[in-house]
Design a protein around this nucleic acid. Structure first.
Length: 502
RNA sequence: GGCGGCUUGGCCAAGCGGUAAGGCGACGGCCUGCAAAGCCGUUAUUCUCCGGUUCAAAUCCGGAAGCCGCCUCCA
């Protein structure tokens, strides 16, 4: 067990040693719930989901906290535009977020705190900062954090406050002692949600909620803090300032940041109008295809979402399931591979003695800074090994029945399949049985092709008869006819099956 | 202006000093009545370019070119 994690704070890959043995505290910045989530949110959530799963698999007791920012300018703006209550807005999008993440087979974090439910914690936190001389209240204005009061300001993002001020594009607020000081508490304007505080009715600034909530659930110091790369500055920098200024000790040991999703090699942006929403992607692709895609590149690098890549991913996932289906046909039993949150650990205890070389390789891949791209390569290597065994025993030609497969081969195939399922359970894929995967695929194909399956079956039957009577001309004619409908035939040992092409 | 990142075969993508994983595609073969699937083989003497360090560099250092992100809300 020697997990290494790239730490943004040090810019190096470091051996992961939790603050307390066997326990890990992890905080990830969740969405501001004012709009529908896009594919970029999905990437971040899926990546940290895999990290969560891997930490648990590695034997840690993980407390995973992911917040919802449910009070914010954008939510208020949205509320005013739609004439709704801000709470209505945030609840709507929280619900949507949960639905989509459930569809993507994302495990729920241990705790999902909301900013509005921690206003007391936030006010206390600010109060203490003021008492320590780290923050100041400007009468009639905001409470600001004083960056000059915190020596380490800029250490996460590698920025020097003076340089930033020099090239600043921000309007200087006359109330601030230093232009880089940031808001902890701001006074409420009319018709805005607000809470009473020592500084009048108002609401928290953006950064303070994460310091207050992480402190509440994970303490003054914890192991991992994550989020998108864009959060490094100013959000996470400011969190460090708030928490370390107050508690005088290291806030977070390992900082993890994920890269962005581009769309056809362009950044998602309002001006380009290319925001790709999760719900739209879910309509087009199987959830496991989306996960496999999001994990197909190292989490820190940018990844490009485009149709061509998605088609390649579909081929890959089909290949994995097709192998499992072949294996099942010769009698390898596949376990139910959709473990709930709680039984990942039990599963480990049950199947550990069965794990093979693939699992060992995968473990190395994941231990190396959660290298899911390499883990996926290991999955394909495993599939190839399995197919090779199946070819060698001539299963496809129907020469061997289940009984005549040697016990060594059976044993090896069992291990390969169980390894595949274990690897899948970390990446959150291969959660279905091959039958239901291909059945769903066929149904999806039928749904948008207006093809009558009965008619296809009838043609397949006719072709089988034609083949029996060596009328190959007719057989090929039928094949061509179905091919024109994007239907591909496969003549197997146990009859002919059909599927949709890509 | 400040900070950071990227450039690997037709495409996607690992690689983090020891002599180029994996996927998609293409081509040849096995299998098949023909296919499909699967398997086998071929597809980068070379990693944007130029220098340097080293017995050894895609990997380290210096320089050049191109691309990108952050510094304002952003996963």
């Amino acid at each position: 067990m020697s997990l290494k994690i790239y730490n943004t704070l040090t810019g190096k890959k470091e051996l992961f040693v939790p603050l307390k043995p066997e326990k890990v505290g992890m905080y990830v910045c969740g969405p501001t719930v004012y709009d529908t989530s896009h594919i970029g949110h999905a990437r971040s959530v899926v990546i940290f989901d895999v990290i969560f799963r891997w930490l648990k698999e590695s034997g840690y007791d993980v407390c995973y906290v992911r917040n919802f920012t449910d009070v914010d300018d954008k939510i208020i703006k949205r509320a005013n535009e739609t004439g709704k209550d801000p709470i209505e807005i945030s609840e709507k999008y929280i619900k949507e977020f949960h639905n989509e993440m459930d569809a993507l087979n994302v495990l729920r974090p241990t705790i999902e705190p909301k900013a509005t439910e921690h206003i007391g914690d936030i006010i206390n936190f600010i109060q203490m900062l003021i008492e320590k001389g780290k923050a100041y209240y400007v009468e009639g204005s905001d409470v600001f954090f004083s960056i000059e009061s915190f020596e380490g300001y800029g250490k996460l993002s590698g920025r020097n406050p003076d340089d930033m001020i020099a090239g600043a594009r921000i309007a200087v607020d006359e109330n601030k002692r230093n232009p880089m000081d940031f808001t902890l508490w701001k006074p409420a304007k009319p018709r805005e949600p607000s809470w009473e505080s020592p500084w009048g009715a108002g609401r928290p600034g953006w950064h303070i909620e994460c310091s207050a909530m992480s402190n509440r659930y994970l303490g003054q110091s914890f192991d991992i803090h994550g989020g998108g790369k864009d959060l490094i500055f100013p959000h996470h920098e400011n969190e460090i300032a708030q928490s370390e200024a107050l508690f005088g000790k290291q806030f977070v040991k390992y900082w993890i940041h994920n890269g962005f999703v581009d769309i056809n090699n362009e950044k998602m942006s309002k001006s380009l109008g290319n925001f790709t929403m999760i719900k739209d992607v879910l309509v087009k692709y199987h959830p496991e295809v989306i996960r496999l895609f999001l994990l197909s590149k190292h989490y820190r690098s940018p990844i490009d979402y485009n149709e061509n890549s998605m088609d390649e991913i579909i081929s890959g996932l089909d290949k994995i399931y097709a192998f499992l289906e072949r294996a099942a046909k010769v009698g390898v039993s596949l376990s139910d591979n959709n473990p709930s949150d709680s039984d990942l650990k039990d599963k480990k205890a049950n199947t550990n003695n069965l794990s093979g070389e693939s699992w060992a390789a995968f473990k190395e891949d994941m231990d190396d800074d959660f290298n899911s791209a390499r883990g996926i390569a290991t999955i394909f290597d495993t599939v190839k090994r399995g197919n090779r065994i199946l070819d060698s025993i001539g299963e496809s030609a129907g020469k061997n029945s289940k009984d005549s497969i040697s016990s060594e081969n059976m044993q090896e195939l069992s291990i390969i399949c169980s390894d595949l399922q274990k690897m899948g359970s970390i990446l959150g894929i291969i959660a279905q049985s091959p039958e239901s995967y291909f059945k769903a695929k066929k149904e999806a194909g039928l749904a948008d092709s207006s093809i009558d399956p009965k008619m296809v079956d009838q043609l397949v039957l006719e072709r089988t008869e034609a083949r029996k009577s060596k009328n190959f001309a007719r057989a090929d004619e039928i094949r061509a006819q179905l091919d024109a409908m994007n239907i591909i035939l496969e003549d197997g040992a146990s009859g002919t099956t059909w599927k949709f092409g890509q």
